[in-house]
Amino acid sequence: MSTADTGTRTRRTPGLVPVTETLSTVERRPEEPSDRPAPLAPQAGRRAGAFWRLLVSELSLTFHRPRNLAMLAALATVPVIMGVSLRLFAGDDQVGGMIAAVAGNSLMLTFLALSALVLLMMPIAVSVVAGDALAGEAGGGTLRYLLAAPAGRTRLLAVKYLNAVVYAYAVTAVVALSALVTGLVLFPAGDVVLLSGTTVTMTDGLLRIALTVGYVGFALSAVAAVALAISAFTEVPIGAIAGTVVLIIACQVLRAIPALEAIAPYLLPTRFTGFDAVLRSPIDTGALTEGLLTFGAYIVMSLSIAWAHFTGKDVTS
Protein backbone atom coordinates (compact mmCIF):
# COMPACT_ATOMS: atom_id res chain seq x y z
CA MET A 1 0.00 0.00 0.00
CA SER A 2 2.65 2.46 1.05
CA THR A 3 4.81 1.58 -1.92
CA ALA A 4 1.91 2.13 -4.24
CA ASP A 5 1.11 5.43 -2.61
CA THR A 6 4.63 6.64 -2.87
CA GLY A 7 4.66 5.57 -6.48
CA THR A 8 1.48 7.46 -7.17
CA ARG A 9 2.79 10.53 -5.51
CA THR A 10 6.06 10.40 -7.34
CA ARG A 11 4.32 9.92 -10.62
CA ARG A 12 1.74 12.60 -10.12
CA THR A 13 3.87 15.33 -8.63
CA PRO A 14 7.37 14.88 -9.93
CA GLY A 15 8.44 18.38 -9.06
CA LEU A 16 7.31 18.38 -5.45
CA VAL A 17 9.52 18.79 -2.48
CA PRO A 18 9.76 15.28 -1.07
CA VAL A 19 7.83 14.61 2.06
CA THR A 20 10.95 13.79 3.97
CA GLU A 21 12.10 17.34 3.59
CA THR A 22 9.28 18.96 5.48
CA LEU A 23 10.32 19.83 8.96
CA SER A 24 7.68 17.99 10.88
CA THR A 25 8.15 14.79 8.93
CA VAL A 26 11.85 14.84 9.47
CA GLU A 27 11.24 15.16 13.15
CA ARG A 28 8.79 12.37 13.18
CA ARG A 29 10.55 9.95 10.89
CA PRO A 30 12.73 8.16 13.43
CA GLU A 31 9.69 7.06 15.39
CA GLU A 32 8.17 5.23 12.53
CA PRO A 33 9.88 1.84 12.62
CA SER A 34 8.92 1.22 16.20
CA ASP A 35 5.34 2.11 15.41
CA ARG A 36 4.96 -0.07 12.39
CA PRO A 37 2.86 -2.71 14.21
CA ALA A 38 0.28 -0.06 14.88
CA PRO A 39 -1.91 -0.84 11.86
CA LEU A 40 -2.48 -4.32 13.22
CA ALA A 41 -3.42 -3.07 16.64
CA PRO A 42 -6.40 -0.76 16.06
CA GLN A 43 -8.92 -3.57 16.40
CA ALA A 44 -7.84 -3.73 20.02
CA GLY A 45 -8.54 -0.02 20.20
CA ARG A 46 -12.25 -0.70 19.96
CA ARG A 47 -13.32 -0.69 23.56
CA ALA A 48 -15.62 -3.33 25.02
CA GLY A 49 -17.99 -0.85 26.60
CA ALA A 50 -18.06 1.49 23.63
CA PHE A 51 -21.50 0.38 22.48
CA TRP A 52 -23.00 0.94 25.92
CA ARG A 53 -21.23 4.27 26.22
CA LEU A 54 -22.93 5.43 23.04
CA LEU A 55 -26.26 3.99 24.17
CA VAL A 56 -25.98 5.74 27.53
CA SER A 57 -25.14 8.97 25.71
CA GLU A 58 -28.19 8.48 23.50
CA LEU A 59 -30.45 7.70 26.46
CA SER A 60 -29.21 10.68 28.39
CA LEU A 61 -29.89 12.85 25.35
CA THR A 62 -33.42 11.44 25.06
CA PHE A 63 -34.30 11.62 28.72
CA HIS A 64 -32.86 15.06 29.27
CA ARG A 65 -34.68 16.57 26.35
CA PRO A 66 -37.54 18.68 27.71
CA ARG A 67 -39.82 17.74 24.83
CA ASN A 68 -39.53 14.02 25.55
CA LEU A 69 -40.06 14.52 29.27
CA ALA A 70 -43.08 16.72 28.62
CA MET A 71 -44.66 13.94 26.57
CA LEU A 72 -44.11 11.47 29.42
CA ALA A 73 -45.65 13.93 31.87
CA ALA A 74 -48.64 14.55 29.61
CA LEU A 75 -49.22 10.82 29.22
CA ALA A 76 -48.99 10.36 32.98
CA THR A 77 -51.76 12.86 33.60
CA VAL A 78 -54.28 11.15 31.32
CA PRO A 79 -54.92 8.15 33.62
CA VAL A 80 -55.35 10.58 36.52
CA ILE A 81 -57.96 12.54 34.57
CA MET A 82 -59.65 9.31 33.53
CA GLY A 83 -59.69 8.01 37.09
CA VAL A 84 -61.04 11.20 38.59
CA SER A 85 -63.78 11.60 36.00
CA LEU A 86 -64.80 7.96 36.39
CA ARG A 87 -64.88 8.39 40.12
CA LEU A 88 -67.11 11.45 39.79
CA PHE A 89 -69.44 10.36 37.02
CA ALA A 90 -69.52 6.56 36.93
CA GLY A 91 -72.18 6.40 39.59
CA ASP A 92 -75.14 5.62 37.38
CA ASP A 93 -76.01 2.11 36.39
CA GLN A 94 -76.04 2.70 32.66
CA VAL A 95 -72.36 2.06 32.30
CA GLY A 96 -71.12 -1.43 31.70
CA GLY A 97 -68.06 -3.28 30.59
CA MET A 98 -64.66 -1.87 31.36
CA ILE A 99 -65.98 1.33 32.95
CA ALA A 100 -68.00 -0.60 35.48
CA ALA A 101 -65.03 -2.87 36.03
CA VAL A 102 -62.81 0.12 36.80
CA ALA A 103 -65.28 1.41 39.36
CA GLY A 104 -65.21 -2.03 40.93
CA ASN A 105 -61.48 -2.57 41.07
CA SER A 106 -58.45 -0.32 41.25
CA LEU A 107 -56.31 -2.40 38.91
CA MET A 108 -58.72 -2.17 36.01
CA LEU A 109 -57.93 1.52 35.49
CA THR A 110 -54.50 0.46 34.23
CA PHE A 111 -56.01 -1.69 31.51
CA LEU A 112 -58.54 0.97 30.60
CA ALA A 113 -55.90 3.71 30.44
CA LEU A 114 -53.55 1.58 28.35
CA SER A 115 -56.34 0.55 26.00
CA ALA A 116 -57.31 4.17 25.44
CA LEU A 117 -53.81 5.61 25.10
CA VAL A 118 -52.24 2.82 23.08
CA LEU A 119 -54.38 3.62 20.07
CA LEU A 120 -52.84 6.97 19.30
CA MET A 121 -51.26 8.97 22.12
CA MET A 122 -48.54 6.51 23.08
CA PRO A 123 -47.60 5.73 19.45
CA ILE A 124 -47.31 9.46 18.80
CA ALA A 125 -44.94 9.92 21.72
CA VAL A 126 -42.79 7.03 20.51
CA SER A 127 -42.91 8.30 16.92
CA VAL A 128 -41.58 11.65 18.06
CA VAL A 129 -38.51 10.04 19.59
CA ALA A 130 -37.91 7.36 16.96
CA GLY A 131 -38.85 9.54 14.00
CA ASP A 132 -36.46 12.20 15.20
CA ALA A 133 -33.68 9.66 15.77
CA LEU A 134 -31.94 9.79 12.40
CA ALA A 135 -33.79 12.59 10.63
CA GLY A 136 -33.14 14.94 13.55
CA GLU A 137 -29.41 14.23 13.50
CA ALA A 138 -29.36 14.60 9.72
CA GLY A 139 -31.37 17.82 9.83
CA GLY A 140 -29.15 19.30 12.53
CA GLY A 141 -26.00 18.20 10.74
CA THR A 142 -24.80 16.24 13.76
CA LEU A 143 -25.17 13.00 11.82
CA ARG A 144 -22.05 13.74 9.78
CA TYR A 145 -20.00 14.30 12.90
CA LEU A 146 -21.35 11.14 14.56
CA LEU A 147 -20.46 9.12 11.47
CA ALA A 148 -17.05 10.76 11.19
CA ALA A 149 -16.37 10.06 14.87
CA PRO A 150 -16.89 7.20 13.70
CA ALA A 151 -20.08 5.93 15.29
CA GLY A 152 -20.52 3.28 12.57
CA ARG A 153 -23.76 3.19 10.65
CA THR A 154 -25.02 -0.20 11.80
CA ARG A 155 -23.94 0.56 15.34
CA LEU A 156 -25.64 3.95 15.31
CA LEU A 157 -28.83 2.42 13.94
CA ALA A 158 -28.79 -0.24 16.67
CA VAL A 159 -28.23 2.38 19.37
CA LYS A 160 -30.97 4.60 17.98
CA TYR A 161 -33.42 1.71 17.92
CA LEU A 162 -32.57 0.45 21.41
CA ASN A 163 -32.94 3.99 22.68
CA ALA A 164 -36.41 4.21 21.10
CA VAL A 165 -37.34 0.83 22.61
CA VAL A 166 -36.31 2.04 26.05
CA TYR A 167 -38.42 5.14 25.54
CA ALA A 168 -41.34 2.99 24.36
CA TYR A 169 -41.16 0.95 27.55
CA ALA A 170 -40.77 4.13 29.60
CA VAL A 171 -43.96 5.49 28.03
CA THR A 172 -45.78 2.25 28.83
CA ALA A 173 -44.46 2.07 32.36
CA VAL A 174 -45.31 5.70 33.07
CA VAL A 175 -48.91 5.26 31.93
CA ALA A 176 -49.27 1.96 33.79
CA LEU A 177 -47.77 3.33 37.00
CA SER A 178 -49.79 6.51 36.91
CA ALA A 179 -52.98 4.52 36.30
CA LEU A 180 -52.10 2.02 39.00
CA VAL A 181 -51.47 4.68 41.62
CA THR A 182 -54.56 6.65 40.60
CA GLY A 183 -56.62 3.46 40.71
CA LEU A 184 -55.35 2.48 44.13
CA VAL A 185 -56.14 5.93 45.48
CA LEU A 186 -59.61 6.26 43.99
CA PHE A 187 -61.06 2.77 43.73
CA PRO A 188 -61.32 -0.27 45.98
CA ALA A 189 -58.39 -2.66 45.91
CA GLY A 190 -58.76 -6.40 46.10
CA ASP A 191 -59.59 -9.36 43.95
CA VAL A 192 -59.87 -8.72 40.24
CA VAL A 193 -62.78 -9.88 38.09
CA LEU A 194 -61.62 -10.89 34.62
CA LEU A 195 -63.59 -10.51 31.42
CA SER A 196 -64.42 -14.20 31.60
CA GLY A 197 -66.20 -13.60 34.90
CA THR A 198 -63.47 -15.37 36.82
CA THR A 199 -62.07 -13.80 39.98
CA VAL A 200 -58.33 -13.74 40.62
CA THR A 201 -56.19 -12.37 43.43
CA MET A 202 -54.71 -8.90 43.37
CA THR A 203 -51.20 -10.37 43.02
CA ASP A 204 -52.37 -12.26 39.97
CA GLY A 205 -53.87 -9.02 38.70
CA LEU A 206 -50.55 -7.21 39.14
CA LEU A 207 -48.78 -9.98 37.24
CA ARG A 208 -51.27 -9.52 34.44
CA ILE A 209 -50.48 -5.80 34.43
CA ALA A 210 -46.79 -6.68 34.11
CA LEU A 211 -47.63 -8.91 31.13
CA THR A 212 -49.62 -6.08 29.62
CA VAL A 213 -46.74 -3.64 30.03
CA GLY A 214 -44.48 -6.12 28.26
CA TYR A 215 -46.96 -6.51 25.42
CA VAL A 216 -47.74 -2.83 24.96
CA GLY A 217 -44.05 -1.93 25.18
CA PHE A 218 -43.34 -4.41 22.41
CA ALA A 219 -46.20 -2.98 20.36
CA LEU A 220 -44.70 0.49 20.72
CA SER A 221 -41.28 -0.95 19.83
CA ALA A 222 -42.81 -1.97 16.51
CA VAL A 223 -44.07 1.60 16.07
CA ALA A 224 -40.56 2.79 16.90
CA ALA A 225 -39.09 0.51 14.22
CA VAL A 226 -41.46 1.89 11.60
CA ALA A 227 -40.70 5.47 12.65
CA LEU A 228 -36.96 4.78 12.59
CA ALA A 229 -37.22 3.35 9.08
CA ILE A 230 -39.05 6.45 7.87
CA SER A 231 -36.52 8.55 9.77
CA ALA A 232 -33.69 6.95 7.80
CA PHE A 233 -35.18 8.21 4.56
CA THR A 234 -35.52 11.88 5.39
CA GLU A 235 -33.63 14.80 6.84
CA VAL A 236 -36.78 16.46 8.13
CA PRO A 237 -37.62 15.08 11.58
CA ILE A 238 -41.13 16.49 11.56
CA GLY A 239 -41.72 14.62 8.30
CA ALA A 240 -40.68 11.32 9.80
CA ILE A 241 -42.82 11.90 12.87
CA ALA A 242 -45.85 13.04 10.90
CA GLY A 243 -45.35 10.20 8.42
CA THR A 244 -45.51 7.61 11.17
CA VAL A 245 -48.52 9.18 12.83
CA VAL A 246 -50.36 9.46 9.51
CA LEU A 247 -49.53 5.82 8.81
CA ILE A 248 -50.99 4.75 12.15
CA ILE A 249 -54.13 6.81 11.64
CA ALA A 250 -54.48 5.46 8.10
CA CYS A 251 -54.26 1.92 9.49
CA GLN A 252 -56.93 2.74 12.06
CA VAL A 253 -59.16 4.02 9.26
CA LEU A 254 -58.50 0.98 7.03
CA ARG A 255 -59.28 -1.22 9.99
CA ALA A 256 -62.71 0.35 10.31
CA ILE A 257 -63.68 -0.37 6.69
CA PRO A 258 -65.64 -3.63 6.65
CA ALA A 259 -64.67 -4.45 3.07
CA LEU A 260 -61.00 -4.52 4.07
CA GLU A 261 -61.53 -6.84 6.98
CA ALA A 262 -59.23 -9.38 5.37
CA ILE A 263 -56.15 -7.18 5.76
CA ALA A 264 -57.00 -5.94 9.26
CA PRO A 265 -55.10 -8.70 11.08
CA TYR A 266 -51.90 -7.62 9.35
CA LEU A 267 -52.22 -3.96 10.32
CA LEU A 268 -50.16 -2.91 13.28
CA PRO A 269 -52.88 -1.02 15.23
CA THR A 270 -55.20 -4.03 15.10
CA ARG A 271 -52.91 -5.73 17.59
CA PHE A 272 -52.38 -2.75 19.90
CA THR A 273 -55.25 -3.68 22.20
CA GLY A 274 -54.57 -7.41 21.93
CA PHE A 275 -53.47 -7.37 25.56
CA ASP A 276 -57.11 -7.86 26.59
CA ALA A 277 -56.10 -11.51 26.20
CA VAL A 278 -54.49 -11.32 29.66
CA LEU A 279 -57.90 -10.46 31.11
CA ARG A 280 -59.37 -13.77 30.06
CA SER A 281 -59.33 -17.06 31.85
CA PRO A 282 -57.28 -18.89 30.83
CA ILE A 283 -55.00 -16.21 29.37
CA ASP A 284 -55.44 -16.31 25.62
CA THR A 285 -51.82 -17.04 24.78
CA GLY A 286 -52.75 -17.60 21.15
CA ALA A 287 -53.93 -14.02 20.73
CA LEU A 288 -50.90 -12.68 22.62
CA THR A 289 -48.52 -14.73 20.49
CA GLU A 290 -50.19 -13.59 17.28
CA GLY A 291 -49.84 -9.99 18.40
CA LEU A 292 -46.21 -10.39 19.38
CA LEU A 293 -45.42 -12.16 16.10
CA THR A 294 -47.07 -9.34 14.17
CA PHE A 295 -44.99 -6.76 16.06
CA GLY A 296 -41.88 -8.87 15.52
CA ALA A 297 -42.54 -9.02 11.79
CA TYR A 298 -42.94 -5.25 11.63
CA ILE A 299 -39.74 -4.78 13.62
CA VAL A 300 -37.73 -7.13 11.40
CA MET A 301 -39.07 -5.61 8.18
CA SER A 302 -38.69 -1.98 9.26
CA LEU A 303 -35.23 -2.39 10.74
CA SER A 304 -33.91 -4.33 7.75
CA ILE A 305 -35.24 -1.66 5.39
CA ALA A 306 -33.78 1.08 7.59
CA TRP A 307 -30.46 -0.76 7.68
CA ALA A 308 -30.35 -1.38 3.94
CA HIS A 309 -31.02 2.25 3.22
CA PHE A 310 -29.04 3.89 5.98
CA THR A 311 -25.81 1.91 5.51
CA GLY A 312 -25.66 2.96 1.88
CA LYS A 313 -27.05 6.43 2.19
CA ASP A 314 -25.12 9.48 1.05
CA VAL A 315 -25.04 11.84 4.02
CA THR A 316 -25.11 15.26 2.43
CA SER A 317 -26.61 17.24 5.27
Partner: peptide
Protein backbone atom coordinates in the same frame (compact mmCIF):
# COMPACT_ATOMS: atom_id res chain seq x y z
CA UNK B 1 -23.17 21.23 13.84
CA UNK B 2 -24.05 20.54 17.46
CA UNK B 3 -27.04 19.93 19.69
CA UNK B 4 -28.32 23.41 20.50
CA UNK B 5 -29.84 22.35 23.82
CA UNK B 6 -26.58 20.92 25.14
CA UNK B 7 -23.63 22.82 26.60
CA UNK B 8 -20.38 23.00 24.70
CA UNK B 9 -18.85 20.45 27.01
CA UNK B 10 -21.80 18.06 26.78
CA UNK B 11 -21.65 18.32 23.00
CA UNK B 12 -18.01 17.25 22.97
CA UNK B 13 -18.78 14.34 25.31
CA UNK B 14 -21.55 13.27 23.00
CA UNK B 15 -19.29 13.04 19.96
CA UNK B 16 -16.56 11.42 21.99
CA UNK B 17 -19.03 8.69 23.00
CA UNK B 18 -19.63 7.94 19.34
CA UNK B 19 -15.96 7.02 18.85
CA UNK B 20 -15.61 3.34 19.75
CA UNK B 21 -11.91 3.73 20.50
CA UNK B 22 -12.24 6.66 22.88
CA UNK B 23 -12.18 6.00 26.59
CA UNK B 24 -14.96 7.13 28.86
Amino acid sequence: AFYPYLTGEANLRRFDAADPTASG
